[in-house]
Computed example of a mutant assay.
Amino acid sequence: MKKCFILVFFLTSTILGANAQLLPSVQFGLKAGLNFSSLKSEDGGWLDASTRTGYQAGIWARIGGAGVHFQPELYVTGKSSEAKLVGTDEEGKVTFTSLDLPLLLGTRIGLGPVGLRIHAGPVVSFVVDKSIGESLGQVTEFSEYKNQAWAVTGGLGLDISNFRADLRYEHGLSELSKNDAAPQKLNLWTIGIGYRLF
């Protein structure tokens, strides 16, 4: 009877341990950082846009076990660009404040509290505020921007204990301007620091 009990206990412990390894872990944290964005015309021939610094702040989650993980994030992001119409004196600052939702797939290389991550995925942005410099605002091509945009992002991340660091490039897929004659896309680099709460 004692041997039977030990055997049942051993089998139960083994099964529960195996299931625990299969169950995905869940992490949640905060993140803030800087972005360096530029607004570019499709052909590059009529809009000269310089890179300007913006910000991001929000939350992230990571769901997954060994191998691949899913990492949804939600940020308030400020993006801006110094834009100039080529061949004219029309110039000004274009700014966007948006809610950005990256949906990333990634993998982690490393053991214990230190690991290197590789991740990529789509980003959908919901513009909540936009501002166009007075001079540019008088030009037809800059009269209206869309309220939603899609992009794709990818980059590297580093985990050290509860701290997270990320470097990413985001490439705009959507035309931002409602004027089809003036296609524009926003591209940016982001550097972020995060902290895992649990």
Rank of each mutant, 00 (worst) to 15 (best):
3 K>I: 15
6 I>C: 04
8 V>R: 12
11 L>V: 12
15 I>M: 11
16 L>V: 10
17 G>F: 13
22 L>R: 14
24 P>S: 10
34 L>R: 09
36 F>N: 03
39 L>D: 06
39 L>V: 11
40 K>P: 00
40 K>T: 14
41 S>C: 09
41 S>L: 05
44 G>Y: 02
46 W>F: 12
46 W>M: 04
47 L>V: 13
49 A>G: 15
49 A>I: 03
50 S>T: 01
50 S>C: 00
50 S>A: 03
51 T>Q: 11
51 T>W: 01
54 G>S: 06
55 Y>W: 06
56 Q>V: 04
57 A>S: 10
59 I>Q: 06
59 I>R: 06
59 I>K: 05
61 A>V: 13
62 R>G: 07
66 A>M: 12
71 Q>H: 13
73 E>Q: 13
76 V>P: 02
78 G>E: 08
79 K>G: 01
82 E>F: 01
88 T>D: 14
88 T>H: 08
90 E>R: 15
91 E>Q: 11
92 G>P: 03
94 V>F: 00
95 T>N: 08
96 F>Y: 11
96 F>V: 04
98 S>F: 01
98 S>I: 09
99 L>N: 06
100 D>L: 00
100 D>Y: 02
100 D>E: 14
104 L>W: 06
107 T>L: 00
108 R>M: 09
110 G>A: 01
111 L>N: 11
113 P>K: 08
115 G>P: 05
115 G>D: 07
121 G>W: 01
127 V>L: 08
127 V>H: 09
127 V>M: 08
128 V>M: 05
129 D>P: 09
131 S>N: 15
133 G>M: 02
133 G>L: 04
138 Q>E: 14
139 V>S: 13
141 E>P: 09
142 F>P: 01
147 N>I: 07
147 N>K: 14
150 W>G: 09
151 A>M: 03
153 T>Q: 12
155 G>A: 00
162 N>H: 15
162 N>Y: 13
169 Y>Q: 00
169 Y>W: 00
173 L>H: 11
173 L>M: 11
173 L>C: 04
174 S>W: 03
175 E>G: 10
176 L>M: 10
178 K>C: 06
179 N>P: 05
181 A>F: 07
185 K>C: 03
186 L>H: 06
186 L>C: 03
188 L>T: 10
189 W>N: 00
190 T>I: 01
196 R>T: 13
